[in-house]
Amino acid sequence: MDAPLIDPFARAIEYLRISVTDRCDFRCVYCMSENMTFLPKKDLLSLEELDRMCSAFIRLGVKKLRVTGGEPLVRRDIMTFFNAMGRHLDSGALDELTVTTNASQLARFAKDLYAAGVRRINVSLDTLNEQKFADITRWGRLPQVLKGIDAAQDAGLRVKINTVALKGFNEDELFTLTEWCASRDMDLTFIEVMPMGDIGNEDRFGQYWSLKDVRARLEESYSVSDLSERTGGPARYVQLSETGQKIGFITPLSHNFCESCNRVRVTCTGDIYTCLGQEGHSDLRGPLRSSESDAILEEAIRAAIALKPRGHDFDYSRQRVDGQVSRHMSHTGG
């Protein structure tokens, strides 16, 4: 049982993304519909169960744990979980504890996150225009988010901005976002919109802006050089000589990043998805709840990893959305 987690393609699984809730205080148009029906709370893993789940993965070799949602910081008493995970940092079993957030609650939690051992966070932010921000998040307020980012930096957290590249929406803010991040010593990662879940009347293909074009636009104004650096995630990085900042590109559509995938996702209900872009999943909640011992759970984790596919099927190349999956990103974990 001490053997590391190795998938069928000889990739060591060292990175777990765990969703602690499907709920969010925003309703971003590319992520979910405005009138979402969220999961019954009884279906969600308790904080104690989330601790057991993550601890089992850490025993099996996971070195990086990213906490996601929904919006993870809206989960009641969530700092109890972060503080519990801190013991794995203290023991050296876990190398990094991170979180992806919309920053709406960061003003409340930034200092506590740092105290729990979090040193890096990703903040999802697609525009610096207050009206456009309200439009794309439906419920969000930009000043609240900016206040949260201020609090995070004041607390000592390293902030990286994640921006979904959206055609016709934030194309005109490419350089504004880049310069703003540079002025605050924040790295920036662009993400291609992914075809996940029913989002109502929104047009997936109409939203899609290839990051090949984003890079080409940046190269018109900056000296762009490739970096070999990887952070355990799917991003490929470049550096802008003029600002010194690092720019990431997450390209599930224009450039498949599956060959080096070392990640799995566990949802807030205890399903494990070994590929973001496939429907296949395995139940870990049943094994978790079936015994006070973790032996059955660890066996189920190994069985799930043995089913991990080579890669996903996302594809926009035929002028339509292929490889779409039915679940929302907020359920899987952003």
Rank of each mutant, 00 (worst) to 15 (best):
D7G: 03
I13E: 02
E14T: 15
L16M: 11
S19W: 03
S19H: 04
D25L: 03
F26I: 08
N35W: 12
S46F: 12
E49F: 09
F57N: 01
I58W: 04
R59M: 05
H88A: 00
S91I: 06
T98F: 01
T100Y: 11
T101L: 06
N102F: 07
Q105N: 13
R108T: 14
Y114N: 12
Y114Q: 12
R119M: 07
E130A: 15
T137A: 04
T137Q: 06
W139D: 14
P143L: 12
V145A: 03
L146N: 12
V164Y: 01
F169S: 07
E173V: 10
L174R: 04
L177S: 05
W180G: 05
A182P: 10
R184C: 10
R184T: 09
T189Y: 04
T189D: 10
P195L: 08
G197K: 00
D198C: 08
F205Y: 15
G206S: 09
L211E: 09
S221A: 15
Y222D: 11
S225V: 15
L227I: 11
R236G: 08
I247A: 01
G248N: 03
G248M: 02
I250E: 06
P252I: 05
E259H: 14
C261E: 01
R263Y: 06
T267M: 02
I272L: 10
G277W: 04
G280E: 14
S282E: 12
L288F: 04
I296F: 12
L297D: 05
L297Y: 10
E298W: 05
E298S: 07
I301V: 09
Y316A: 12
R318Q: 15
Q319N: 15
G323V: 07
S326T: 13
R327P: 00
H328K: 13
G333I: 01
